[in-house]
Design a binder for these strands. Structure first.
Lengths: 142, 142
DNA sequence: CTTGACCTTCACACAGATGTGATGGTTGGA
DNA sequence: TCCAACCATCACATCTGTGTGAAGGTCAAG
């Protein structure tokens, strides 16, 4: 498939697909006319890239992680440099920290939303607009 | 405590603490001489901010999330605008996606590392250096 | 009083991810 | 044949989070 289709199927601007390639995250073939030609697996790959970027990982790190996610059932153990392994271990640790931070915050948001819903009496249900902001504290038995 | 101590205790450059304040994430008191004065809870708050920033959230979003994490046992239900609630729900969803993406990738890294360790025979244990990179595939029964 | 270690504000610089547009080649259908 | 819809490269701009440093105020200790 060409860049346009991949862009559409992944919801990614063409610009970004070229950028990821420039960063070495994507290596499409080229048609005789110079057009980029992507394989089917590129779709998941791009989705992975975007997810990791959105989770705060820089392309440089994603580039090192991607080989671990290659295709299912086949793990590419290439150039397993001591240094690469160390990097992966370090990044895995950082990812764990991120996960913990995100889970903590997400749960806190959930608690908050639940508390707000509890506090929202359907009393003033008549008006869908409540312009002035309420400002009070809720004691919660954690 | 003043900015220097907070910086040291959180491992954060002073520059960043001022920046977070500029973005409305931190609101320290001011001493009569103009120095910023932080309370004890600022330490955790800064750590939270940094963790979320590192997880890909922009300050604009963190600003909306922070009130949910305020102090333990007391949830501040302030200005619970319909719009704020909607935003929080949306961001919570995105955080969940990030978490899933990170977990998937982290697990893949773990599998990879395990496979590499398995492949690393202590056979050539004599030489601590193995300059040339091995390049092969491992079939793994997922 | 002076020195050094703090603090203030301000401003410019940078890197990374992304937006936008100019300029031009390829290709397939009206 | 010519137009529309793709594609290519290149260059510049933007936004965010950071780094760095200048110019100057505060304060405690020598």
């Amino acid at each position: 498939m060409r860049i346009g289709e991949l862009a559409e199927r992944t919801g990614t601007p063409r610009r970004m697909l070229r950028y990821y390639e420039e960063q070495g995250l994507l290596v499409p073939d080229r048609s005789p006319n110079g057009y980029r030609e992507y394989c089917e697996r590129s779709v998941d790959r791009v989705l992975q890239i975007r997810g990791l970027l959105d989770s705060g990982l820089p392309t440089r790190v994603i580039k090192q992680i991607l080989p671990c996610l290659k295709q299912p059932r086949s793990i590419h153990v290439a150039g397993a440099t001591l240094e690469t392994i160390t990097t992966l271990e370090r990044e895995r640790e950082r990812m764990t920290q991120r996960i913990e931070c995100l889970i903590r915050s997400r749960d806190a948001i959930s608690d908050y939303l639940e508390a707000v819903r509890g506090a929202r009496r359907p009393a003033g249900a008549g008006g869908p607009e409540r312009p002035a902001a309420a400002d009070y504290d809720l004691a919660v038995s954690a």
